[in-house]
Simulated scan of single mutants.
Amino acid sequence: MATSTPSTPASPRLLVLISGNGSNLQALISATTSTPPTLPAHIIHVISNKKAAFGLTRAANANIPTTYHNLVPYKKQHADIASARQAYDAELVRLILEQKPDMVVCAGWMHIFSEAALQPLVEAGVGIINLHPALPGQFDGADAIERAYKAFQRGEIGGTGIMIHWVICEVDRGEPIVVREVEMVAGEELAELEERIHRVEHVEIVNGTRMALKRLMREREAAGRT
Rank of each mutant, 00 (worst) to 15 (best):
N24A: 09
G22H: 07
T33C: 07
I43C: 10
K51F: 13
L39K: 08
S19C: 12
I44M: 12
H45W: 08
G20D: 03
I18Q: 06
L17M: 13
H42V: 05
A52F: 12
T38A: 10
H45E: 12
P36W: 06
P37K: 00
N24P: 07
L25W: 00
L28S: 01
A27I: 05
I29E: 02
H42R: 15
P37D: 00
K50C: 11
P40N: 14
P36M: 03
L15S: 12
L14E: 06
Q26E: 14
R13K: 15
P40C: 06
A53C: 12
S23R: 12
N49F: 11
G20A: 09
A27F: 02
T33A: 05
I47S: 07
K50E: 15
S19Y: 11
L14N: 04
S19P: 04
L14H: 08
N49R: 12
L15Y: 09
A53E: 01
L28W: 01
G22P: 05
N49G: 12
I18C: 01
S19W: 11
R13W: 11
H45P: 08
N49Q: 13
S30M: 03
I47N: 13
S30E: 15
N49V: 11
L39W: 08
T33K: 12
Q26G: 04
I47W: 07
H45C: 06
G20L: 09
I44V: 15
T35Y: 04
V16I: 14
H45T: 11
A27D: 03
T32D: 01
A52W: 13
P36V: 02
N24E: 01
I29D: 00
T33L: 09
H42I: 04
L25D: 02
S34C: 02
G20T: 05
T33I: 00
K51M: 11
I44N: 10
S34V: 00
S30T: 14
L25G: 00
H45R: 13
S34R: 03
I29K: 03
H45Q: 12
I44K: 14
